[in-house]
Every structure is written in C-alpha cells, then in structure tokens.
Amino acid sequence: MKRSRGFALPTLMVMLALASLAALLALRHLWVNEQLLNAETDQLRTLHKAHAALPLAVADIIGASNNNMRHIAGDLTQTHAFFPSSMTEYNTLRQRLLPNTCNAGICAPNALQPSAAKASYWKTQTATALAIPATQTPYGDNTAWYWVEIFPQANSSQDNFIYRITVLANGVMPSSTTVLQAVWARTSVTSPTGQWHSWHVLHD
C-alpha cells in the first residue's frame, strides 16, 4: 500500500508535465496557423490593391485624371513626362527621359527588357513611379505605385501605342508585396476605351 502511494506522486507529476507540454504545443500550433492566415490575408489584400490600381492607370493614360500636363508635350523648354499622341511626341518623350527610361510613372523603353519581367526590378524603381495617393486607395500613402511603359504598335498605319502597366503594392507585413503587370491597348488613337491583352503577377 505504501509502495503504491510512493509511485502516485511521480506519476501525477509526469502526467501534469505531459499535459502542460501538450497544451504548449497546441498553443504554438494555433499561433503558427494564425501567422500563416494573417500573411495569406495580407498577400490577398496587396493583390486586390494592385488590381484596383489598373483602372487608375488607364484613366491616367486616356486623360481622365486631373493632371492635364501629363497629356501636353509643351515646348522645347519643358522637361516633364507626358503621354504622347503621335510618334513625333513619342520621340520627344524618349529624349526627355534620357538617360533614364521612366519618370513620374511614364516610361519609354527602347525595347522589352528581360529584367522588367521580374518583381525585384520594379521594387527598386519606386523613385521613377507614380505613387497612388491616399485619396484614391483606402490603404494610405506610399503603399502602391505604378508605371506605364509605352510601345509603338507594330504594323499600324496610325500612331497607335500599346501600354504595359506595372503595379507595385505593399502590404502591412514586409513580405507582403505584389507586382502585377498587364497590357492594355486603345481601340483607336483617341478612343477612351481599350482592351486588356494580358495580366499576370511577377516573380523572380
């Protein structure tokens, strides 16, 4: 009887220790799941933010924004970037952008660059992007940017252009970043409507 009582306390202590360990493991499992869920939610939020920026970029292209200077080339003394409406203005834009290819979110690259198909490239180019203000996004300032690359449309008798839009959106977490790239073309030179040709999320 005394021998049984002698084993009861150590057995109880071992059982309590095992129960505590099981509780700690369960709490850690819940914490890990919560962190994964928060990260996934934040990543989905950045994707939504990037998609929401595409119509803003199109409005900028067609001149629906309030900044009319982005559609006026001006004279030879002007240095601002603008959306060209002819090949003559396009060549003027390219000269103004030198030695860079982008300014204020308007780009005129010489050709398709392989680096521009990687997310890491755009993450280092925010100084040349157009930042989306807090009035146009519920997520606040300095959380989303976009660039519009302008390419002359091949085999076209008119001065048509194709626009490749790249959006960079940051989430709350440092690892939550989405870089979305889409191609849009106007129906005609002055048409306010157009067609999406492709869009995809960039990776490295």
Rank of each mutant, 00 (worst) to 15 (best):
A182N: 05
A64W: 09
I106Y: 00
D204M: 10
T178M: 09
V32H: 10
L36P: 02
T177M: 09
K2Y: 12
L130E: 08
I132K: 03
A64H: 13
N66V: 07
A111E: 11
T88N: 06
V167F: 05
P114Y: 04
M69N: 08
G6A: 15
M173G: 11
A39H: 08
Q158D: 14
L25T: 15
V58D: 00
L98K: 14
S156Y: 03
S86P: 09
H80N: 02
Q136D: 09
M13C: 11
A26W: 15
I72V: 14
W147A: 02
A119M: 08
Q181I: 09
H29N: 14
W122M: 05
I72S: 00
N103C: 07
T79E: 04
T190G: 10
N170C: 10
N67E: 09
N170A: 07
R94Y: 03
W199R: 12
L56F: 01
N103E: 13
M15H: 06
L54H: 00
F7S: 05
T143F: 00
S85W: 00
A116V: 05
C107E: 03
G63W: 01
F82Q: 01
A8K: 01
A104E: 10
H48S: 14
A108Q: 06
T46A: 06
Q195F: 14
E40A: 15
G194S: 06
I72L: 06
D75T: 03
S65I: 02
A185M: 14
E89K: 00
N170K: 15
P99D: 05
W145T: 03
R164N: 02
D60S: 04
Y146F: 13
R5E: 10
F161W: 05
A169P: 08
P138I: 01
G6E: 13
A22Q: 11
S175W: 11
A26Q: 14
A129N: 03
G6K: 09
Y139D: 08
E149P: 07
L12F: 12
I62V: 15
S65C: 08
S156V: 03
Q195W: 13
I162S: 14
P109M: 10
A19L: 15
A23R: 11
V148I: 05
I165M: 06
R164Q: 11
T92D: 01
F83E: 01
H29S: 15
A104N: 12
P152E: 02
L37T: 12
A57V: 01
R94H: 07
L9S: 07
H51D: 11
T135E: 08
V167H: 00
A169E: 07
A23I: 12
H48M: 11
R186A: 12
L54K: 04
A17F: 15
H29V: 09
Q195D: 07
A134W: 02
L76K: 04
Y90Q: 00
